[in-house]
């Protein structure tokens, strides 16, 4: 069973209750920044009067989990993408690669961690709902299984076609995400990227990574082959030279 959150931007009233609940859950200070940062794992951005709640998208095939050299990120069976700071070595490839710019870094710490939302994994494991969902007074965030949420999103679009732009953001973007968005306009007008492929981004590196075992085998064979041929050629040349010398010596010997 994979859980997710449906974020309905048309319902968000910008009260920041989710930010406060999230800060409490992580033990972070409350700020007025209202953007994702090392101390804000969810944030309500203001795009010309439209409030846009942001959090980790919890991709179906997460880019961060694909790029991390030590597997510090895992897509759990329940849906959340979780991070293990004990494995992390701090290469920050996850921050570089995330198509949604979610992971942030504790730049000023000497033992820095990557920070991001984990969909309140502990609470979900115990059958609870994420803190931000619980705190939202406007029901802008709905928690449920991904299938349920997709049905719910379709229902809302069908029942109120004037209210909604008919696109569920996260259904296919970057291979699909556990967090889904509904809005009254295309999401690229609300700070999201338009140029995301529908395949997971790991697809682009998989293509080349899958060639490696073959390359090692054939490359190794080829190199040993070239070595053997060039060595053999030299040996033959040397022997031929010797043979010639011997023949010449023989001729000289006969001449005497």
């Amino acid at each position: 069973m994979k859980y997710g959150i449906l974020v309905d931007i048309t319902r968000c009233i910008g009260c920041y209750a989710c930010e406060e609940a999230c800060a409490e859950r992580w033990g972070n200070p409350i700020t007025e920044e209202h953007r994702l940062s090392a101390i804000q794992n969810t944030a309500v951005e203001d795009h010309d009067g439209i409030y846009v709640p942001r959090l980790c998208m919890h991709c179906e095939k997460p880019t961060c989990a694909s790029v991390c050299p030590v597997g510090a990120f895992q897509k759990t069976k329940l849906g959340p993408v979780v991070y293990d700071p004990l494995k992390c070595l701090g290469c920050r490839y996850c921050i570089q690669a995330c198509p949604f710019n979610v992971p942030k870094y504790q730049w000023n710490k000497l033992n820095p961690k990557v920070t991001k939302c984990d969909m309140c994994y502990e609470r979900i494991q115990k059958g609870g709902v994420p803190a931000c969902v619980e705190a939202c007074p406007a029901e802008a965030r709905t928690f449920g299984t991904r299938e349920e949420l997709i049905e719910e999103a379709k229902r809302r679009i069908n029942e109120n076609p004037e209210t909604y732009y008919p696109h569920i953001f996260g259904l296919k973007e970057a291979g699909g995400t556990s967090i889904l968005y509904l809005a009254d306009r295309p999401l690229n007008k609300l700070g999201f990227k338009v140029n995301l492929p529908e395949v997971p981004l790991s697809h682009f590196t998989e293509q080349i990574m899958s060639k490696i075992p073959n390359y090692i085998f054939w490359g190794g064979t080829l190199l040993f082959g070239i070595w053997w041929i060039t060595k053999r050629r030299d040996e033959v040349q040397r022997l031929q030279k010797k043979l010639k010398e011997m023949e010449e010596n023989n001729k000289k010997g006969n001449g005497k």
């Binding site: 989990a65 790029v67 991390c68 050299p69 030590v70 597997g71 510090a72 790991s202």
Partner: peptide, 9 residues
């Protein structure tokens, strides 16, 4: 700690 899918790995 292995992640053979990762280019960085």
């Amino acid at each position: 700690m292995w992640n053979p899918e990762s280019v960085m790995f």
